[in-house]
């Protein structure tokens, strides 16, 4: 059952990637693009977790954790830049 479901899940997450990329390219404003990047990193975590289940290895988990950390910091830095015109005051 799991083997049946995994390809469908991969396809759905790939479609999610495509939709976020479309918003990233389309814009129209800077916060829209940041939100698209934010969604992309969350989608990446989903993809890595799925890959871990598919390949039966826990190695990808560390990568998912690091992406979660870095993605959050990146989003906050970009928002601060929009709000203040500067990141480190």
């Amino acid at each position: 059952m799991l083997n049946l479901v995994l390809p469908i899940a991969f396809a759905l997450v790939a479609a999610a990637f495509a939709l976020s990329f479309w918003r990233l390219l389309r814009g129209p404003s800077a916060p829209d693009r940041i939100l698209a990047l934010d969604t992309l990193y969350i989608n990446t975590i989903a993809l890595l977790v799925l890959l871990g289940i598919q390949l039966g290895t826990a190695l990808y988990f560390e990568a998912a954790l690091l992406i979660a950390l870095m993605g959050f910091v990146g989003t906050v830095a970009l928002c601060k830049y929009l709000l203040r015109g500067d990141i480190i005051e």
Binding site: L2, A9, A16, A36, T39
Partner: peptide, 17 residues
């Protein structure tokens, strides 16, 4: 769980687009 997770991830991005 896997299917629900993938569907919700997809719907989130669908909302974005």
């Amino acid at each position: 769980l896997v299917l629900a997770g993938a569907i919700f991830t997809f719907i989130g991005s669908l909302g974005l687009a």
